[in-house]
């Protein structure tokens, strides 16, 4: 019996020239490529997200600091009032004596004439001013306060930024979902459903092979395994049956 009929073959080939659509080709090839490059893809995905994530973190940090700063402002305004006491502690006797001296001379000038008294307090202020400013205490505590506050605030904000960015970013959510998307995509194409239908066959065979192995019928088990591989080449073998 001939297995081919050349005339029939030619007629069939002329009639049947269907090809898969291009988008279908693209989907399959993309999936096939992704399947053999999972690590590289995961790494590049991290790098792809590193810049947007760090940008989001910086933005959130900036906004948080911006909101935080106005609450700090009154403290900064109050600092000069506190600073002298700090300054006094540092250069205490000399500055105190100088201030008292200026104050007393001003008092003297005040008694000598009201018009002449005006520069007095000004001078007293000028003289006192270095006592306020010179120790450099004014900027320092503020800076120190900021510095002391910054690391904790920074870390808190960074953590918040991270979590906010993660939660707020829909694309990140999509990316996270994509990592577990393999079964999802399979479900989309109806593969899971189909697999359930197919699995009854091979699973029964696997149970049978295990039973044979338990009973020590190794040769029969080996043949059954070969049959399983032949009939269901796509079926993923359980680990315990992978050994030769």
């Amino acid at each position: 019996m001939e297995e081919r009929d050349p005339m029939l073959s030619r007629a069939y080939r002329e009639a049947s020239q269907a090809e898969p659509p291009k988008p279908l080709d693209d989907r399959i090839l993309t999936a096939a490529r992704a399947a053999v490059a999972p690590k590289r893809r995961g790494r590049s995905r991290w790098f792809a997200w590193a810049i947007p994530l760090s940008t989001a973190a910086v933005l959130v940090l900036a906004v948080t600091l911006n909101l935080y700063m106005p609450r700090q402002a009154p403290q900064l305004e109050g600092l000069p009032a506190e600073t002298p006491s700090l300054a006094m502690n540092d250069s205490a006797p000399q500055a105190k004596a100088e201030a008292e001296h200026i104050a007393s001379s001003a008092q003297r000038e005040l008694t000598s004439g009201a018009a002449a008294a005006r520069p007095g307090p000004a001078r007293a202020e000028e003289a006192a001013a270095p006592a306020v400013v010179t120790p450099g205490a004014t900027p320092f505590p503020a800076q120190q306060a900021t510095r002391q506050a910054t690391p904790t605030a920074e870390s808190r904000n960074a953590a918040a930024a991270g979590s906010v960015a993660v939660e707020a970013s829909p694309t990140f959510g999509a990316a996270a979902k994509a990592q577990t998307a393999a079964p999802e995509s399979a479900r989309e194409t109806g593969m899971i459903e189909a697999d359930h239908a197919a699995v009854s066959g091979p699973e029964e065979r696997v149970r049978e092979i295990r039973r044979l192995l338990r009973e020590g019928r190794a040769e029969e088990a080996r043949k059954a395994l070969q049959g399983l591989r032949r009939q269901y080449p796509e079926y993923p073998l359980p680990d315990d049956l992978k050994k030769p």
Partner: peptide
């Protein structure tokens, strides 16, 4: 594609994709 198109008209695309995806998954123990 033609094999599936003649055997399951109207559903060839879905089946075609499934078959190739099975090939991709089965590669590890090929």
């Amino acid at each position: 594609y033609r094999y599936l198109a003649h055997q399951a008209a109207g559903q060839a695309d879905e089946l075609f994709q499934d078959v190739w995806m099975r090939v991709v998954r089965a590669r590890e123990h090929y």
